[in-house]
Design a protein around this nucleic acid. Structure first.
Length: 597
RNA sequence: GGCCCCGUAGUUCAAGGGAUAGAAUAGGCGUUUCCUAAACGCUUGAUCCAGGUUCGAGUCCUGGCGGGGCUGCCA
């Protein structure tokens, strides 16, 4: 854990080392860390890497360096050496000063807006045939949170989504609806549009499988049977008609897409995620086609006898990849090429793009980025695939056929209902009106879910156990929210304005107080680190550690009983700083903090 | 087969190449009883295996083993 005082310490070590040993270490050789609780001191300099340069054994060099630091820096009050570790104690005043600065900064941890280049973050981008499920929740929360983290790190962020509104998959549900729909609409059935269309996609799949099975029974091999399936042929024909602009097909397409996105938007609203701009695949696939055709002319790609266009990536250790079908229609990759290029054209100042997409598509993005490079696209290496692992259930992977898919709407509802039930049972907010109670249930229930999905580092696949994830104790958002509420309540009770608290800078801070201060002071670095790694879990775990430290601190440091006003004010400032830091951190995860609960 | 990701307490997750691998939860023992979405103290318990690099490896390298993913004219 690095914090703001470390920058100062870093330079002091560099200069003092040079003055003492006559050589200047490289920045990377200076390692500073939090002193372990069992040793005396606040910050520890790891001297092993410096021993060679000092020409002395680590413990000797550490001792000399420690003496020199204490002598030359009035804010370092003491030192001790254990093996090659130099433990330093900082003065009370240095802690108090840093704490005072933190308390006076409501946006603590957030860098000035737009102090760094613009970044585009894509997330969500679901398949329109399937209602959103648990996996999409991880995607949306992750993408949204990474956007917030990048913003806090000073970047100008554009949150975008690609709407997959064309392609064979759309035609499948359209065909099924035409054949079996009897004119059903979301308003006639009362069903959410995405759920209705999803149902017809399933119906298509069922009919298709039945036709294939029938074909196989007639003696065809499976591939032939698939190609011969009438319903699949109908879907292909429809895709061609769509690309030709057939008004009837386009009309149906607009209607059904409208249903889906009405449904999705309701879920996005419920999740609390937003987008700054939407890109439509139907707008970008033609641009993609153009670039593929240009690539073919330039000899970057090649064409097979059936007219299909491919890229050969065998020299890069990958395969041949299809870019355009034999019948001239576009595939997923075609539109992704167009979309990537369009986005950089749209945003002249754009430094890079981040794609939040599951790790099952790592190959796809590797190929995409390589193709962009081969096309000579200037920003080809300014793309990042933010890959994340699957969410698994105790029974294994979610499988729609086995009915083990956890629906996003259902889960969100269940989370708020559970939070509401607990809240009602406790009766602590009986004075809330219905609207306030519903808001609290949402903040707590949805917060629990967001935190659960974001506290795990993205590359890892994670286990979602519906029973234990509803748990509101331990490393959970409700625990954090609750303790921040306590902080706020303490400050309310003390009737002070945190920003105007003053105390003598020499007021001593004990070990527990220094730990809390260090957690607060480290927060800006934590945000930077999270931004560089595209990893909100860094923020989540830091917030938990800090609030937990506060929780046990308050257990035996009840502020109200403190008589000395310097000490009391310092502790109130600490309380305010913790509250602000953790609230800001949770905000970066898209989690709201209630005032009371 | 090839390529990618992951292997840490019973379980779910931590640990910028640094000291005795941390939490939570479950279990065990004890205290307390609504101050706060009950509390506190103590306790049991883990780096998949084998080499290598390093003053120092859960972390980096090589090889195994195990789990997952990708390798579609699906997205």
């Amino acid at each position: 854990m690095i914090h703001v005082l470390d920058t100062r310490l870093h330079h002091a070590v560099l200069d003092t080392f040079e003055a003492t040993f006559g050589k200047r270490p490289a920045d990377a050789q200076i390692q500073i860390q939090t002193t372990r609780a069992e040793f005396e001191g606040d910050r520890t300099v790891v001297v092993f890497p410096l021993a060679g340069l000092a020409g002395a054994p680590p413990h000797v060099a550490a001792e000399k360096l420690g003496e020199a630091l204490v002598a030359s820096q009035d804010w370092i009050s003491g030192h001790n050496v254990v093996k090659g570790f130099l433990n330093l104690t900082l003065t009370d005043a240095s802690w108090s000063e840093a704490l005072r600065d933190a308390v006076g900064t409501p946006s603590w941890g957030c860098a000035p807006a737009s102090s760094r280049p613009q970044v585009m973050v894509e997330y969500s981008s679901p398949n329109t045939n399937k209602p959103l499920h648990l996996g999409h929740l991880r995607n949306n929360f992750l993408g949204y949170s990474v956007s917030k983290v990048l913003e806090a790190a000073g970047h100008d962020v554009a949150k975008v989504q690609i709407i997959n509104d064309r392609g064979i998959h759309i035609c499948k549900s359209m065909v099924a609806w035409q054949k079996m729909g009897n004119g059903e609409t979301p308003s006639s059935t009362g069903e959410k549009g995405d759920k209705l269309v999803g149902r017809y996609y399933v119906a298509f799949d069922k009919a298709f499988k039945a036709e294939v099975a029938e074909g196989v029974a007639r003696g065809l091999d499976p591939k032939e049977a698939e190609a011969a399936s009438p319903i699949m042929q109908a879907a292909r024909t429809m895709l061609q008609r769509w690309e030709e602009g057939d008004p009837k097909v386009v009309g149906l397409w607009k209607t059904m897409n409208g249903w889906v996105y009405e449904g999705f938007n309701a879920t996005y609203h419920d999740m609390g995620v937003t987008f700054d701009k939407l890109y439509y695949e139907s707008d970008t696939y033609l641009l993609g086609k153009k670039h593929v055709e240009q690539g073919l002319e330039q000899g970057v790609f090649f064409q097979k006898e059936d007219g299909s266009i491919w890229v050969d990536l065998t020299d890069d250790g990958l395969d041949e990849k299809l870019l355009l079908r034999g019948d001239g229609t576009a595939v997923y990759m075609t539109q992704d090429i167009g979309t990537a290029i369009l986005r950089f054209e749209d945003h002249p100042g754009l430094d890079r793009q981040v794609y939040t997409v599951g790790n099952e598509q790592e190959y796809h993005f590797k190929v995409l980025f390589l193709i962009l490079k081969k096309l000579g696209f200037a920003q080809a290496d300014r793309n990042h695939h933010l890959s994340y692992g699957m969410v698994e259930l105790p029974e294994g992977k979610m499988k729609s056929r086995e009915g083990t898919v956890v629906d996003a709407d259902d889960l969100l509802l269940e989370m708020r209902s559970t939070a509401r039930a607990i809240s009602d049972e406790l009766g602590k907010v009986d004075d809330f009106n219905e609207e306030e109670k519903a808001l609290l249930a949402r903040q707590v229930g949805h917060g629990a879910l967001k935190y659960f999905l974001l506290k795990v580092s993205p590359p890892k696949s994670m286990m979602f156990d519906p029973k234990s994830s509803i748990d509101f104790f331990g490393n959970t958002a409700p625990f954090i929210q609750f303790n921040v509420v306590r902080c706020k309540s303490i400050l309310r009770g003390a009737e002070v304005d945190p920003g105007s608290l003053t105390w003598s800078l020499d007021t001593p801070l004990d070990a527990a107080e220094r730990t809390l201060a260090a957690g607060v002071l480290a927060f800006p670095n934590v945000v930077q680190e999270a931004a560089e790694a595209y990893d909100p879990s860094v923020v989540a775990n830091h917030c938990y550690d800090l609030i937990k430290a506060f929780s046990s601190f308050y257990q035996d440091h009840p502020i109200a009983k403190e008589e000395n006003s310097d000490k009391r004010n310092m502790r109130l400032a600490l309380c305010a700083a913790v509250s602000t830091t953790v609230s800001n951190g949770m905000g970066l995860l898209g989690i709201d903090m209630p005032e009371r609960m």
